[in-house]
Design a protein around this nucleic acid. Structure first.
Lengths: 192, 192
DNA sequence: GGAAGTTTGTTTACTAATGAACGAATCCAG
DNA sequence: CTGGATTCGTTCATTAGTAAACAAACTTCC
């Protein structure tokens, strides 16, 4: 890909996200975006039809990344696994600026919904309905899981990540075990 | 000016200076520069005939800035003044990365010479030969001043600025007063 | 309500940047 | 010495980005 395209897109998105952290989506103008991005206004229209399209593409690409953070280590393991959960929260921590901006921005409702929808799409493909989940209703299991995780994500990001990614995943995993949503740990007193 | 030109030049110079801080000038290639600058190799040749030209333009523009730092507050005051000296060292502190790179780089001799030559050019125009300097030989005065200042600059930068700009100027100014190179302070016991 | 000023989205002609190709020069290992 | 690999400096056709202009749709404020 022509590096000019990548550089322009990157500059525009970066400026846009920075502005979203400062003010509501509605009161952001294309003028501001192009100025902040140090790019001609025409260039913005060259890549995005309007600021709604820009927002949409931003959210889409980030949610694709989020889904990909589930399964970074090749085909190793099935979700839900503690390792893949940790990857996701590590990714979120690295892109907290964006997620905080869209979650907090009053001009961007629906993001919470799209977040959960993305989790659902990602989870649906790779969840293992054998073993522990054999007798569960998949639809309900996924709904429960994605709600829980989305809620944790929203809380963690909007509260400025008050705990480390490891700590959050530790807690979340414990809750999932308690609710029999994941493979149970071996009982310490158990004999084989 | 077309912002593409500014952006390309900026990226190239930034990459070049960063590389100079890492390795000798001779072993820096145009390939490396264009890669680091995230710019096509042809773009480098579009702005600079070769890496010597790049180095030359870098040094030239920085020395112009250095001279301009002498007289930032309009036509206020004559050099040497404590305020203008401070401006110069403030400027140097802000661009220490570049000056450290060229001063330390074994592939860039002559820089010390050009530094002093720039100081000399800047000083020659605005030094006040009346008053305290009435009976001095201008050529020798300027030679003395520029040597002293250039030496201080080189020491300050290559030693990672071990004192603040204010401290350095304080010391330098005291030395200049002691040598009657600047207007003498009013004697505390003096009556008008 | 209406004048003055923004912002929007589109179009224009122009120019800078791109990547690819090329032969020549230079470097370096075998 | 020799042959493979880099780097050099240049050329080329294509494309992305540019500033400027424009009318239309908005705010804002008197």
């Amino acid at each position: 890909m022509d590096r000019r395209i990548l550089k322009s897109r990157e500059a525009i998105v970066e400026a846009f996200v920075a502005l979203m952290a400062e003010k509501n989506f509605e009161q952001i103008t294309i003028n501001e975006i192009s100025e902040r991005a140090n790019v001609s206004r025409g260039t913005v229209y060259l890549h995005y039809t309007d600021k709604f399209d820009l927002l949409d593409q931003c959210i889409k690409s980030h949610l694709v990344e989020l889904i990909e953070s589930f399964l970074p280590c090749g085909a190793t393991g099935i979700f839900p696994s503690k390792a893949s959960l940790l990857h996701t929260f590590q990714y979120l921590g690295q892109h907290a600026f964006f997620y905080a901006a869209v979650l907090a921005n009053k001009g961007v409702p629906m993001f919470r919904y799209r977040l959960q929808a993305a989790l659902l799409r990602g989870l649906d493909k790779q969840i293992d309905m054998n073993g522990i989940n054999r007798d569960m209703n998949k639809e309900m299991l996924i709904q429960f899981l994605t709600s829980a995780i989305a809620g944790m994500i929203e809380w963690w990001i909007t509260n400025s990540m008050p705990y480390t990614d490891v700590e959050v995943v530790e807690q979340l995993w414990a809750l999932m075990e308690r609710n029999q949503m994941v493979p149970q740990p071996f009982d310490k007193g158990m004999t084989i």
